[in-house]
Design a protein around this nucleic acid. Structure first.
Lengths: 197, 197
DNA sequence: TCGTGACGCGAGTCATCGCTCGCATTCAAC
DNA sequence: GTTGAATGCGAGCGATGACTCGCGTCACGA
């Protein structure tokens, strides 16, 4: 941010710009994401935009950060709530929360996951993964049979990445052969089978 | 392609352009992938470039197509070779082939997987997935206990997507806690545990 | 009420880039 | 050797887009 907005008026301008950025991204795609277009969609002049954002990329960063923060919050909240429950139930609930979070804005997810060439995007996704992975690691380490073969750190890496991709592809590709409940069932089977193998 | 090269001279020009495209992509990233830059890297004038390629995107497409075709060929070849072997050995060999194929050009993989906003990229990756998934589906359908819960189509979808992401992330992120052999071990455990669950 | 700084505007600058076109050069067939 | 097609060149056109700057307008404290 180049300058912090001080009055309520300018705070709303910044909000409008970010919202317009999100909208332009969804409606027109990444290639059409130009500062002029974002400014127009926000009902703001290009000059005003540059009072608060140093460059085009920084607008994109805010949009991306907010999006992944939303997803991460929903998943982490669900996971933290059920930290005491039995394995399979917890896996199912977490997967459910992840799928739901990704379903919330499928259009934006598509652009963010398949179209954005920005490094910041990967960083933000990595933050989500790490957050979940750490929770899973501590859970696995506390298991009674934690001496078993896959070490908690490795096992959580495997489980989180596998589930993440399944959820992502399911939401974006909507394979006709796999219903939502079936997906969650298979995810539970995958994780349970792996941990008990 | 706008025009097919007829003489050996022009065939080599086209090759140089494609190679330069690949190199520019790796060295400078997607944002710097301009026709002028590719032409310069190929030691060719922009005009010559447009004799054979209708536009910038088509150059990118050729580069992407070739890359995923390389990966798909290696994986499919390995899988076809071992179609008769026992489950775990086949899983391990296939995962090994996939990881090896992705490791072959890590720099290009990074750009292709994390930076390219092109639709064509997803299409090509989907082709690879489908090829492998069909082989896996027929294998699963032929199993003695094929009446078991995960239907072959669903099971292969799950297995392929999970393994794919693990291989991709392992190659790109190189997590220190997971060695190459350990990765393959865990992949086998994941798949076996799931199918026998 | 008035003055000062925050805010907003939008035409315009500068650079880049995709792509073309007229011309020079090379190749191959006769 | 001549000729026509294939190939190659590179200056430059037209468009776009990131970003600026000088100038109005508005809010708020005194």
């Amino acid at each position: 941010m180049r300058k912090a907005p001080q009055q309520a008026r300018s705070r709303e301008t910044v909000e409008r710009i970010v919202a317009a950025g999100r909208q332009v991204l969804v409606a027109d795609g990444y290639d059409a994401f130009s500062t002029n277009r974002v400014a127009a969609a926000a009902g703001v002049s290009p000059g005003s935009l540059y009072q608060y954002f140093p460059d085009k990329a920084s607008i994109l960063e805010v949009v991306i950060d907010r999006y992944w923060a939303e997803v991460a919050d929903r998943v982490a909240a669900s996971l933290a709530d059920r930290i005491g429950e039995a394995g399979p139930a917890m896996v199912r609930a977490t997967a459910d929360a992840l799928v739901a979070a990704l379903e919330a804005d499928r259009a934006l997810l598509r652009v963010v996951a398949e179209e954005l060439p920005v490094q910041r995007n990967r960083e933000r996704r990595a933050v989500l993964e790490r957050r979940v992975r750490e929770l899973v690691t501590t859970y696995l380490a506390a298991r009674p049979d934690s001496s078993r073969r896959p070490s908690p750190a490795v096992a959580s890496w495997i489980v989180v990445l596998a589930i993440e991709n399944l959820a992502l592809r399911w939401v974006l590709d909507q394979p006709g052969t796999v219903g939502r409940d079936a997906l969650l069932d298979e995810m539970v089977a995958l994780v349970s089978g792996y941990l008990l193998a």
